[in-house]
């Protein structure tokens, strides 16, 4: 199963390229001209998202540097122990919505401290693998079209993250414990 998925992952982009270019050839689309026309926006969009990225990433970097996450982790630790989960995993639960590289770093720490085959490592792996950095996606996607009033988008993103955490705990306790 995993092998098949890996092969598909490897081939998906080549297949897209072949399909698009071959269809274009049949329909006599001037591919080079159209490519450069579309590619021009690459720079424009990347520059356009910078202000949004700076606002979000600086804010989150400051928040992480202040030690606020450790305080939050301590606050919620009793709750986790109630569910028989190691409190080591708490920083990951919080950071995975905030920073992708931060979450990877914390995950590596957990894996190294708990041991490769520990339950905590498995739970952390599932939690990290099933998440996307909500704040980053928000900054990039809304920044690219200049949206500043995000309405209920963040609430849904964070609620989905929370449901993901709860689901990870439940699924792992059924499968690995």
């Amino acid at each position: 199963m995993a092998d098949i998925l890996n092969i598909i992952s490897l081939w998906i982009l080549p297949v897209i390229l072949i399909t698009v270019l071959t269809t274009a050839l049949i329909k006599k689309v001037p591919v080079y001209e159209q490519f450069t026309k579309g590619a021009k926006d690459g720079f424009k969009i990347s520059v356009k998202i910078i202000p949004y990225l700076v606002a979000i990433i600086v804010g989150i970097s400051m928040f992480r540097a202040s030690g606020a996450i450790d305080i939050l982790a301590k606050l919620f630790a009793p709750l986790l122990i109630k569910f028989h989960i190691s409190p080591d995993i708490l920083p990951l639960m919080i950071v995975r919505s905030l920073s992708g590289s931060g979450a990877l770093g914390i995950f590596s720490d957990i894996a190294n401290n708990s041991g490769a085959d520990a339950y905590t490592t498995k739970l952390a792996a599932v939690m990290l693998g099933s998440s996307e950095t909500t704040f980053y996606v928000l900054a990039v996607y809304f920044g690219a079209v200049g949206i500043s009033k995000i309405r209920y988008a963040l609430i849904i993103g964070l609620l989905a993250d929370f449901i993901g955490i709860a689901a990870a705990v439940l699924v792992c306790s059924l499968m690995f414990a």
């Binding site: 329909k27 490519f35 969009i45």
Partner: peptide, 27 residues
């Protein structure tokens, strides 16, 4: 933030170019 934005430029340009072709070709 700037590093992330700049690292996006090249790959963004490439896929936006391909998508432009895909659109013109009706894909």
């Amino acid at each position: 933030s700037v590093k992330i934005a700049f690292s996006l430029i090249g790959i963004m340009a490439f896929w936006l170019g391909i998508m432009q072709i895909a659109q013109k070709a009706g894909v």
